[in-house]
């Protein structure tokens, strides 16, 4: 089915087993409950990074994912706190709103290429932060705090999703939610890359004029891809806001946008699961280095520089040899 080899299937099975059973078991044994929060963050950041990776796939360097994550976080927070929606409805709404913004902004800026697109998306992150500071509905610098935990969902009295506020272990619940979202995201991404649309994207990555000349509707495809990418960013941001129970204009900044991009680079741009690995290594590494106190940043950046110096094509390129392509 779908042309999967048994090796791929067993790999996926091992991965699922590891994150749903292995990790909780290990954390239960070692008692490091704080790792739940770290791993949940990794899963959510990996969702946003997946979006960045997708824009890389059409040959655009996107340093604006922080903007869409912030938009998603605010939309969800406003819908839950001020309108009184359930979090589970506000989550897709946040994604869709981010996608809508992406379409509107994408229409002009997707005409830019290369370093111009990179710079304008970087500026975009700053614009959204400033907008959040200026608009009355976002509460300015005070942000929106005390966002209630996601409530339960039931259809005809059958509970589909439990009420997070009534649980004694919300960390585990958030961990599972984030992992499920991450798996859906990456499954979508994998499917997308191996579809007709994926082929068209690869043709655009190589040469847009050429792709256009053989009848690929490039302006349509790049808008669609940018919207999907921002949808992922919105979802990741909304979930993050719900876990932190607060959103501030500084929740996602330029540095976060750069980090999303770094996750993709580090994992390797030629591999669908690259951003996931990149996020894990970068975020987990940063967390582990916390013990070094004021040398944390120094060690982290040195390792980062060394990795890119000796593995310029990403971590996953070790397995496939130098210059390994998809």
């Amino acid at each position: 089915m779908f042309g999967f080899t048994s090796k791929q299937l067993s790999g996926v099975a091992i991965f699922l087993f590891a994150i749903f059973i292995g990790v909780p078991l290990l954390i239960g044994l070692t008692g490091r409950w704080d790792f739940y929060f770290t791993l949940t963050s990794v899963a959510l950041l990996a969702i946003a990074s997946a979006g960045v990776w997708l824009t890389f796939y059409i040959g655009r360097i996107n340093i604006g994912q922080g903007a869409f994550a912030l938009i998603g976080a605010y939309v969800s927070a406003i819908l839950v706190v001020k309108v009184g929606w359930s979090f589970w409805i506000s989550l897709p709404a946040a994604g869709l709103f981010a996608a809508l913004v992406a379409v509107l902004i994408g229409l002009p800026i997707l005409r830019l290429r290369g370093v111009y697109f990179a710079m304008i998306t970087l500026v975009l992150t700053q614009v959204v932060t400033l907008t959040a500071l200026a608009l009355p509905i976002t509460n300015g610098a005070k942000g929106i705090s005390n966002i209630p935990l996601p409530s339960g969902v039931s259809i005809f009295g059958i509970p589909l999703l439990p009420d997070f506020a009534g649980m004694e272990n919300t960390k585990l619940a958030f961990y599972y939610t984030a992992c499920i979202l991450m798996i859906i995201t990456y499954a979508t991404l994998y499917r997308l890359v191996n579809s007709r649309l994926g082929h068209l994207c690869r043709s655009m990555q190589q040469n847009e004029e050429l792709a256009s000349s053989i009848g690929v509707n490039i302006s349509y495809i790049r808008i669609v891809i940018f919207a999907i990418s921002s949808f992922f960013g919105g979802i990741g941001g909304a979930m993050f806001g719900s876990i932190a129970q607060s959103v501030y204009p500084s929740s996602f900044q330029v540095a976060d946008s750069v980090n999303f991009m770094l996750n993709c680079f580090l994992g390797g741009l030629g591999f669908v699961f690259g951003p996931m690995l990149g996020t894990l290594v970068l975020y987990f590494g940063w967390d582990l280095l916390f013990e070094f106190g004021k040398y944390q940043m120094l060690i982290y950046s040195t390792v980062l520089i060394l990795i890119i110096r000796f593995l310029p094509n990403g971590l996953l390129s070790i397995r496939f040899g130098k210059g390994g392509d998809k």
């Binding site: 990179a118 580090l266 520089i305 890119i308």
Partner: peptide, 21 residues
């Protein structure tokens, strides 16, 4: 050594972090 020239962006960002530290 890099397959895509955008890899230099990662390096530049790494250097920015490093200099900050």
């Amino acid at each position: 050594g890099s397959a895509r020239e955008e890899s230099t962006m990662l390096l530049a960002a790494g250097i920015a972090f490093f200099l900050d530290a």
